[in-house]
Computed example of a mutant assay.
Amino acid sequence: METQKLQNSTLILVFGIFSILTCCCYGVLGLILGITTLILAKKATAIYNQNPDLYSGIQNVKTGKILAILGIILSILYILFIVWTVTYFGWETLQNEELMQERLRELMEQYQ
Protein backbone atom coordinates (compact mmCIF):
# COMPACT_ATOMS: atom_id res chain seq x y z
CA MET A 1 0.00 0.00 0.00
CA GLU A 2 1.36 3.40 -0.96
CA THR A 3 1.61 6.02 1.76
CA GLN A 4 0.38 9.54 1.19
CA LYS A 5 1.77 12.67 2.71
CA LEU A 6 -0.02 13.83 5.82
CA GLN A 7 -2.21 16.84 5.13
CA ASN A 8 -0.68 20.20 6.20
CA SER A 9 2.55 18.61 7.46
CA THR A 10 4.75 21.06 5.55
CA LEU A 11 2.50 23.99 6.50
CA ILE A 12 2.77 23.02 10.18
CA LEU A 13 6.56 23.00 9.93
CA VAL A 14 6.65 26.38 8.17
CA PHE A 15 4.21 27.95 10.66
CA GLY A 16 6.31 26.57 13.53
CA ILE A 17 9.42 28.21 12.10
CA PHE A 18 7.61 31.50 11.49
CA SER A 19 6.21 31.49 15.03
CA ILE A 20 9.78 31.70 16.31
CA LEU A 21 10.90 34.23 13.70
CA THR A 22 7.95 36.56 14.37
CA CYS A 23 7.97 36.39 18.16
CA CYS A 24 9.66 39.80 18.26
CA CYS A 25 6.81 41.46 16.35
CA TYR A 26 5.44 42.59 19.71
CA GLY A 27 4.77 38.92 20.44
CA VAL A 28 1.33 38.93 18.89
CA LEU A 29 2.11 37.49 15.46
CA GLY A 30 4.30 34.73 16.90
CA LEU A 31 1.58 33.86 19.40
CA ILE A 32 -1.08 33.64 16.69
CA LEU A 33 1.10 31.49 14.44
CA GLY A 34 2.11 29.25 17.34
CA ILE A 35 -1.46 28.61 18.45
CA THR A 36 -2.57 28.01 14.85
CA THR A 37 0.28 25.54 14.42
CA LEU A 38 -0.69 23.64 17.56
CA ILE A 39 -4.30 23.35 16.38
CA LEU A 40 -3.23 22.09 12.94
CA ALA A 41 -0.72 19.68 14.51
CA LYS A 42 -3.37 18.25 16.82
CA LYS A 43 -5.68 17.57 13.87
CA ALA A 44 -2.87 16.05 11.78
CA THR A 45 -1.74 13.85 14.68
CA ALA A 46 -5.29 12.60 15.19
CA ILE A 47 -5.55 11.68 11.50
CA TYR A 48 -2.17 9.94 11.63
CA ASN A 49 -3.06 7.99 14.77
CA GLN A 50 -6.18 6.56 13.11
CA ASN A 51 -4.10 4.83 10.45
CA PRO A 52 -0.32 5.31 10.79
CA ASP A 53 0.55 2.97 7.91
CA LEU A 54 -1.37 5.11 5.43
CA TYR A 55 0.40 8.45 6.07
CA SER A 56 3.95 9.81 6.05
CA GLY A 57 5.25 13.18 7.21
CA ILE A 58 4.53 12.87 10.94
CA GLN A 59 8.10 14.03 11.66
CA ASN A 60 7.31 17.43 10.12
CA VAL A 61 4.25 17.65 12.35
CA LYS A 62 6.23 16.79 15.48
CA THR A 63 9.00 19.24 14.63
CA GLY A 64 6.49 21.99 13.80
CA LYS A 65 4.71 21.38 17.10
CA ILE A 66 7.95 21.72 19.07
CA LEU A 67 8.85 24.91 17.19
CA ALA A 68 5.36 26.29 17.81
CA ILE A 69 5.69 25.68 21.55
CA LEU A 70 9.05 27.49 21.52
CA GLY A 71 7.50 30.33 19.50
CA ILE A 72 4.63 30.66 21.98
CA ILE A 73 7.01 30.73 24.94
CA LEU A 74 9.25 33.34 23.29
CA SER A 75 6.22 35.44 22.30
CA ILE A 76 4.84 35.38 25.84
CA LEU A 77 8.25 36.34 27.24
CA TYR A 78 8.48 39.22 24.76
CA ILE A 79 4.98 40.43 25.64
CA LEU A 80 5.89 40.32 29.33
CA PHE A 81 9.07 42.29 28.57
CA ILE A 82 7.07 44.97 26.75
CA VAL A 83 4.57 45.19 29.61
CA TRP A 84 7.43 45.49 32.13
CA THR A 85 9.16 48.17 30.03
CA VAL A 86 6.00 50.25 29.73
CA THR A 87 5.16 49.93 33.44
CA TYR A 88 8.73 50.60 34.58
CA PHE A 89 9.61 53.51 32.29
CA GLY A 90 6.17 54.81 31.30
CA TRP A 91 4.86 55.96 27.92
CA GLU A 92 6.28 59.46 28.23
CA THR A 93 9.79 58.17 28.84
CA LEU A 94 9.62 55.76 25.93
CA GLN A 95 8.54 58.52 23.56
CA ASN A 96 11.16 61.07 24.67
CA GLU A 97 14.74 60.07 23.81
CA GLU A 98 16.41 62.49 26.25
CA LEU A 99 14.19 61.40 29.12
CA MET A 100 14.91 57.78 28.27
CA GLN A 101 18.67 58.35 28.33
CA GLU A 102 18.39 60.10 31.68
CA ARG A 103 16.31 57.26 33.09
CA LEU A 104 18.82 54.67 31.85
CA ARG A 105 21.71 56.60 33.43
CA GLU A 106 19.82 56.60 36.76
CA LEU A 107 19.24 52.88 36.41
CA MET A 108 22.91 52.21 35.68
CA GLU A 109 24.02 54.30 38.67
CA GLN A 110 21.82 52.21 40.95
CA TYR A 111 23.67 49.05 39.98
CA GLN A 112 27.23 50.40 40.18
Results as ranks from 00 to 15, higher is better:
Lys65Ile: 03
Tyr111Asn: 14
Phe15Leu: 15
Glu92Gly: 06
Met1Ala: 14
Gly57Tyr: 08
Thr10Ser: 15
Thr45Gln: 11
Leu104Gly: 08
Leu104Tyr: 13
Ile82Phe: 02
Glu106Lys: 15
Glu92His: 13
Glu2Thr: 14
Lys65His: 08
Glu97Leu: 11
Gly27Lys: 07
Tyr88Ile: 07
Leu67Glu: 02
Gly64Lys: 04
Gln4His: 11
Gln112Asn: 09
Leu33His: 06
Gln50Asp: 07
Leu70Phe: 13
Leu80Glu: 00
Glu109Ile: 04
Trp91Thr: 15
Ser19Gln: 12
Glu97Met: 09
Thr45Lys: 12
Trp91Met: 15
Ile12Gly: 06
Thr87Pro: 01
Glu97Gln: 15
Lys62His: 12
Ile73Gln: 00
Cys25Gln: 06
Leu38Val: 00
Gly90Cys: 04
Leu21Phe: 11
Cys24Gln: 12
Met108Lys: 15
Leu21Val: 09
Ile20Pro: 03
Thr85Ile: 07
Thr45Phe: 02
Tyr26Lys: 05
Val14Pro: 04
Gly71Asn: 01
Leu29Cys: 08
Leu107Ile: 06
Ser19Trp: 08
Thr63Val: 15
Leu11Glu: 13
Arg105Leu: 14
Thr85Trp: 03
Tyr78Gln: 03
Leu6Gly: 04
Gly90Phe: 05
Met1Gly: 15
Tyr26Met: 11
Arg103Ile: 05
Ile79Lys: 02
Gln4Asn: 10
Gly30Ala: 01
Leu74Thr: 05
Ile76Asn: 01
Leu6Trp: 09
Ala41Lys: 02
Ser75Gln: 02
Asn96Ile: 11
Gly16Ser: 12
Ile35Ala: 12
Ile32Glu: 02
Leu11Ser: 15
Thr63Asp: 11
Ile32Val: 15
Gln112Thr: 10
Asn51Gln: 10
Asn96Lys: 11
Asp53Cys: 02
Tyr48Leu: 05
Cys25Pro: 00
Gln7Val: 13
Glu98Gly: 09
Leu31Gly: 05
Val61Asp: 06
Glu2Asp: 13
Tyr55Pro: 06
Ile20Ser: 04
Ile73His: 04
Gly30Ser: 02
Gly64Thr: 10
Met108Tyr: 14
Ser56Lys: 13
Leu33Ala: 07
Asn60Gly: 10
Ile82Lys: 04
Cys24Tyr: 11
Ala46Asp: 11
Lys42Ala: 14
Leu80Asn: 00
Met1Ile: 13
Leu33Thr: 01
Ile20Asp: 03
Lys5Arg: 09
Thr36Asp: 05
Thr37Pro: 06
